[in-house]
Write a protein that binds this DNA or RNA. Structure first.
Lengths: 201, 201
DNA sequence: CGTCGCATTGATATCGCTCAAATCCGGTGG
DNA sequence: CCACCGGATTTGAGCGATATCAATGCGACG
């Protein structure tokens, strides 16, 4: 199944992977577990979370279709967070042991993987930069500018507004209000699940 | 000079690198420049920044001795931020072209590099998680827990308190007050440049 | 039809930011 | 040796933006 694997995966590696369904609420691993696999979301959604001292859930990452997660745990002994399925789907499970073997022996694979990691790093830096903005509207603007379509700043809302608010570390109420304000000011335009950036200021 | 290079760098690669001094205020590259090199700080400090619409400086990363920067730009065409030297030191410059060649041809090098990137990714995730905390004291606690020495939660303050505040996206005044509060409450202990976590709550 | 979760709006509280000012410290030049 | 200066540190006061609490409508789903 070509769709399940990135093109650069060697066929021998593909044979050791597992592909299976994930159900909402299922936990793939917990904070502290020994690292046994890295994953790629084929369909559905996985959230990587950690729990604060007060029991509050801290969202580290949301992985959607096509995205890896726990990929940074390759060199670690144990997982640094907990993975929970938040939307039913399909999951590709890649055993670390075999994965490491290929990384060490196949230079073109290792190269492709390094490119992949570099891309993830850049994406995370964007999110980091976004979080460092204080204003809610600044974050929305930044999202449209960095994650939106080239030039047009058009974005398909990733799921519910509530989930989007969580990804940007905003209370969902604040996001509602902010979007209303911005639309009222003519900064953005909303058409159902599509957000468009209007004036380029 | 063994100190300048990570141990896994092939000697042929080392020969194409440049080692030179950097002065405070010097800019290594700007947002939008074509990617020509990745860097490693031997001594001193480099900050990766980006400028907001209001002209405000957004700190993306602070790289100190031993750290790489722009390493995620390997697969990119142009730099996504600006690099400024904030403390005099020495810089290792690694041309991307040669670097790529080695990545593609030397699997053990590529593997080591992938490990390096994975580590960077984990470090950035920690910082990201920290930023997602709302309270100032939560951020300080998180810093001590994740960046501090194992168990003891002991930390050498990275430079000035002001710089530390910037790294945690806090106003420096807020950090001063928070540290005072925390010390008064017996949560932490300060001895000059050393912060120690006391009660493990 | 009842329930659950998302969307939306209102009211209030809180925490960190901003502006301001005083002190301290290291370095520099006379 | 001392006066001066810039930057870090510290403390104070007040504001504002966001979180929080609360209530309602709405659509999907069993």
């Amino acid at each position: 199944m070509e769709d399940f694997f990135p093109s650069f995966f060697p066929s021998e590696l593909r044979q050791t992977c597992r592909i299976g369904p994930i159900r909402k609420g299922e936990q793939l691993f917990h904070l502290g577990d020994n690292v046994q696999a890295i994953y790629r979301v084929v369909a559905g959604e996985i959230r990587l979370v950690r729990y604060g001292a007060d029991g509050g859930e801290i969202l580290l990452h949301r992985a959607g279709a096509g995205e890896y997660f726990a990929e940074a745990s390759l060199g670690a002994e144990y997982y640094h967070c907990t993975a929970i399925c938040t939307a039913e789907g399909t999951l590709l499970t890649i055993p670390v042991k075999v994965f490491r073997t290929f990384l060490e022996g196949d230079s073109s694979f290792a190269f492709a993987w390094a490119m992949e990691l570099a891309g993830n790093l850049r994406a995370l830096r964007r999110r980091f930069e976004r979080l460092s903005l204080k204003g809610a509207s600044d974050r929305v603007l930044h999202y449209l500018l960095t994650e939106g379509a080239e030039e047009t700043g058009e974005v398909h809302l990733p799921g519910s507004l509530k989930a989007w608010a969580a990804e940007m570390n905003l209370a969902h109420e604040t996001l509602y209000r902010t979007l209303n304000d911005m639309e009222a000011r003519g900064l953005i335009e909303r058409q159902g699940q599509i957000l468009r950036l209007l004036g380029n200021a």
